[in-house]
Computed example of a mutant assay.
Amino acid sequence: MKSEVAKSIDEYIGRFPKDVQDILQKVRSIIQKEAPEASEAISYAMPTFVQNGNLVHFAAYAKHIGFYALPSGNLAFQKEISKYKNGKGSIQFPLDEPIPYTLIKKIVKFRVSENLEKQKKKTQKKKTTNSKKPILKKS
């Protein structure tokens, strides 16, 4: 039987042993502090923070915490994440090693500014596009 997807981050975190819950709560609080305007969601069955698009996701597994900062987050911190197993947009922090909370904080800050910049460009593009529309005169 497939386990049901959690409906909230609280429910998601509550499904894990106390030691893992503590780590997940700390990750969550870092994200909340660095992205106070972000909203919480469950996306891809994982805790997700959204601010002008997906910001970051995180999840717990048997032997690691998965942190998903999208490809751009990983590219910006290639050197720092090189000691962890990582992919295009994922990083695995082993549960048997100290979790790099300072690195998580830096990545979240980067993603917030990146998403804000994207939103600014999008807004500017809309204004430019709207200002180029011809004005129709009534006859």
Rank of each mutant, 00 (worst) to 15 (best):
residue 1 M to N: 12
residue 3 S to H: 13
residue 4 E to M: 13
residue 4 E to Q: 15
residue 5 V to R: 14
residue 5 V to H: 09
residue 6 A to F: 05
residue 6 A to N: 07
residue 7 K to N: 13
residue 7 K to I: 10
residue 7 K to L: 13
residue 9 I to Q: 01
residue 11 E to M: 05
residue 13 I to K: 00
residue 14 G to C: 06
residue 16 F to V: 06
residue 17 P to I: 03
residue 18 K to H: 10
residue 18 K to E: 15
residue 18 K to W: 01
residue 20 V to A: 04
residue 20 V to M: 07
residue 21 Q to K: 09
residue 22 D to V: 12
residue 22 D to W: 00
residue 23 I to W: 02
residue 23 I to A: 03
residue 26 K to V: 01
residue 26 K to T: 10
residue 26 K to P: 00
residue 27 V to P: 01
residue 30 I to N: 00
residue 32 Q to L: 14
residue 34 E to L: 03
residue 37 E to Y: 04
residue 38 A to P: 02
residue 39 S to I: 14
residue 39 S to Y: 09
residue 40 E to W: 05
residue 42 I to R: 07
residue 44 Y to E: 10
residue 44 Y to F: 15
residue 44 Y to K: 11
residue 45 A to F: 05
residue 46 M to Q: 13
residue 47 P to Q: 03
residue 48 T to A: 14
residue 53 G to R: 09
residue 53 G to S: 10
residue 53 G to A: 10
residue 54 N to C: 03
residue 54 N to L: 11
residue 57 H to R: 07
residue 57 H to I: 08
residue 57 H to C: 03
residue 58 F to N: 02
residue 59 A to L: 04
residue 60 A to E: 05
residue 61 Y to T: 09
residue 63 K to F: 09
residue 64 H to I: 06
residue 65 I to S: 04
residue 65 I to Q: 05
residue 67 F to M: 08
residue 68 Y to L: 11
residue 69 A to S: 14
residue 70 L to M: 15
residue 72 S to D: 14
residue 72 S to I: 13
residue 73 G to E: 08
residue 74 N to T: 07
residue 75 L to V: 09
residue 76 A to V: 05
residue 77 F to Q: 04
residue 78 Q to E: 14
residue 79 K to W: 00
residue 81 I to N: 02
residue 81 I to S: 02
residue 82 S to F: 01
residue 84 Y to R: 02
residue 85 K to N: 14
residue 86 N to Q: 12
residue 87 G to D: 10
residue 88 K to E: 09
residue 89 G to W: 07
residue 91 I to W: 01
residue 91 I to C: 07
residue 91 I to M: 12
residue 92 Q to R: 15
residue 92 Q to M: 11
residue 93 F to Y: 13
residue 93 F to H: 09
residue 96 D to F: 08
residue 98 P to H: 02
residue 99 I to R: 06
residue 100 P to E: 04
residue 100 P to T: 05
residue 101 Y to H: 03
residue 101 Y to W: 03
residue 102 T to W: 00
residue 103 L to Q: 05
residue 104 I to K: 00
residue 104 I to V: 09
residue 104 I to R: 00
residue 106 K to S: 12
residue 106 K to W: 00
residue 107 I to N: 02
residue 108 V to A: 03
residue 110 F to H: 11
residue 111 R to T: 04
residue 112 V to S: 06
residue 112 V to Q: 06
residue 113 S to W: 01
residue 117 E to Y: 05
residue 119 Q to M: 13
residue 122 K to V: 11
residue 122 K to N: 10
residue 122 K to M: 12
residue 122 K to W: 06
residue 123 T to F: 05
residue 126 K to I: 15
residue 126 K to L: 14
residue 126 K to D: 08
residue 127 K to M: 12
residue 128 T to S: 14
residue 128 T to K: 15
residue 128 T to C: 00
residue 129 T to Q: 15
residue 129 T to V: 13
residue 130 N to H: 09
residue 131 S to L: 12
residue 133 K to L: 15
residue 133 K to C: 08
residue 134 P to D: 11
residue 135 I to N: 12
residue 135 I to D: 11
residue 136 L to D: 07
residue 137 K to W: 06
residue 138 K to A: 12
residue 138 K to Y: 11
residue 139 S to K: 13
